[in-house]
Amino acid sequence: MQFLAIVGRVTLAAFAALGRLAIFAGKALGHLARPPIDVQNIVQQMLSIGYFSLPVVGLTALFTGAALAQQIYVGSSRFNAESTVAAVVVIAIVRELGPVLGGLMVAGRVSSAMAAEIGTMRVTEQIDALVTLSTDPFKYLVVPRLIAGVVTLPMLVIVANIIGVFGGFLVATQTLGFNPGNYLQTTMDYLEATDVASSLVKAAVFGFIIALMGSYHGYHSSGGAQGVGRATTDAVVSAFILILFANLVITIVVFRS
């Protein structure tokens, strides 16, 4: 009986958390549809999500693309198929690695910062103060972050894709002896519109997840510094898992055949 009680309690808690998250997301989306939209806040959030993430996302893409080219070269040379390097690099980067690694890096940087900021505002009663000053905390805090996340991540991922392919190009032409012109030609030949579209859709979804997890965990944090610390961790971990899961779902839907 003890066992059943534990299973029941865990299940109930999981559904309660899921329900709370759904209500939170629904409320945020409801505000998204209703003006006024806080442009100044959105721009500020876009800067902190997008612009300041460029170095870390760029470096991640560069190193990953380079390592990828090296690995594919080694693997494909066993089948005398070295010419596939450019094709595999561009497909792997644009379809999967650009958005996923970009999303994870930004999640680590931004979800945690959002959760810490909003969480601190919660435990120091700043969110209550917003309400008493007739300002809806969803409109002021959550909606600008969600919009900024959805708009900014695709831009970041475009940059990540380009730098990632460039990383592969560097290794292929500098150390593996590929002809630069041929390499780029193959890259362009294998890059399809669907790949780019799926990449951007993934990025927008990941941006939403990052901002939602950061805001949600911050908003519902409690219990002082420890609570804010926990909210930060939860935001990053849940954003990671949701990003990887959403990626799987989108990949299956888009590339089913």
Binding site: T120, M121, T124, E125, Q126, D128, A129, V131, T132, S134
Partner: peptide, 16 residues
């Protein structure tokens, strides 16, 4: 209704 209220919070709750 909220416009009728003002509140001073315990920790002041100023926006950092």
């Amino acid at each position: 209704q909220m416009a009728k209220f003002g509140m001073l919070f315990q920790g002041a709750a100023l926006f950092d």
